[in-house]
């Protein structure tokens, strides 16, 4: 085999005799980065100094930190916090899907309902909303099911029907749904319009098109920011004390420190638990994203997709930046040129 291009010299048109043997690998002197190293060393010295100081600082009361870190009340509270997060997120996701679809439907009634919902629940602080939910039994002492202006079919006292735990979940979920709805909407809008057209041309109804064709494809866009919202929610649960629900991680550790007069080590205990749970969630998000990104195409390298994303938030309530989130996730609305290129071999349903 002759390869005139590979080794032919510019000066002559004769092929070099060893044209077929590969050239030896380049061994170059590596570029040095003296400043980079110096700065790293300086920072390291500061970090060691800080850690050393923190380890010996009286105010942190590390012996109390150690004593309460695995205290049963604390681990139980961590579990309650996790429950609050999971339940409220599940409700919020379902509600958000419905709200987003309503918002995008051609029905003006649905559109307005969704808009007003978002307006109210995004426009007021979640803390205020939680206080309101706590006062529900004061505002509406009895809950009734029935038709307007007719005697109720069923009626029961609010306090009996809804525990503080469920009120906390409702409060968190309804607030979160408003933000998630915007994420879902961005995801739906990112799906190529040709998809909707093809489904319509096949005689599928609008709702069939949405649930069978558009939403499954939008999941890839929806999941990264939703994972971010889960982590955000974990920390928002510390506000349920407003309900007042007092068995979550933060409130529990505050209550203990109120007895022991050691607020600082217990704050450290709570932070350690939040950080631990967040880390676990980040790992979960990593694998979830990887799964939904499978077979998407060469355009998105594994590195881009796989990096735990936390920087991009669509309509997020808090600018939560996850540590280590260096690469932004796939951005909603960013479309590859060809709809056929964005296909996955993974059915997201």
């Amino acid at each position: 085999m002759t390869s005139p291009s590979s080794d032919a010299r510019a000066t002559g048109n004769s092929l070099s005799p060893d044209g077929d043997t590969p050239a030896p690998a380049i061994k170059a002197v590596r570029l040095r980065h003296p400043w980079r190293n110096l700065i790293a060393v300086i920072i390291l010295i500061y970090v060691v100094a800080f850690v050393w100081d923190a380890a010996n600082r009286k105010a942190f009361q590390w012996e109390i930190f150690g004593k309460y870190l695995f205290d049963q009340r604390i681990s139980q509270a961590a579990l309650v916090t996790l429950e609050l997060t999971v339940y409220s997120m599940l409700i919020a996701i379902v509600l958000a899907l419905i709200l987003a679809v309503m918002r995008l439907s051609s029905n003006p009634v649905f559109k307005s309902i969704s808009w007003v919902y978002l307006w109210i629940f995004r426009g007021t602080p979640v803390y205020v909303q939680l206080v309101f939910w706590g006062l529900l039994s004061v505002i509406y002492p009895t809950l009734s099911i029935g038709l307007p202006f007719l005697p109720p079919i069923v009626s029961f006292p609010t306090g009996d029907a809804l525990s503080l735990f469920s009120l906390a979940i409702i409060g968190l979920a309804l607030n979160e749904a408003a933000y998630l709805a915007e994420i879902v909407r961005a995801g739906i809008l990112s799906v190529d319009r040709g998809q909707e057209e093809a489904a319509t041309a096949l005689g599928m109804s609008w709702s069939q098109t949405m649930w069978r064709i558009v939403i499954p494809q939008s999941m890839r866009i929806i999941i990264p920011p939703t994972g971010n919202e889960v982590i955000s929610m974990l920390k928002t649960t510390s506000l349920v004390t407003a309900v007042p629900f007092s068995f979550d991680l933060f409130t529990r550790s505050r209550d203990i420190s109120a007895e022991t007069f050691t607020p600082i080590p217990l704050l450290l205990v709570a932070s350690a638990w939040y950080l631990a749970i967040t880390s676990v969630l980040m790992v979960g998000q990593y694998f979830l994203e990887k799964r939904f990104a499978r077979g998407i195409g060469a355009a998105r390298s594994d590195k881009t997709v796989g990096t735990v994303t936390g920087a991009i938030i669509v309509g997020a309530n808090q600018a939560t930046v996850v540590p280590g989130a260096a690469t932004p996730g796939p951005q909603p609305g960013k479309k590859p040129d060809r709809p056929s290129d964005r296909s996955g071999d993974e059915d997201p349903r």
Partner: peptide, 12 residues
């Protein structure tokens, strides 16, 4: 039946 320029197959 309709066939589109860009195929519009359901990629998932």
């Amino acid at each position: 039946g309709m066939v589109f320029q860009r195929f519009n197959l359901f990629p998932h």
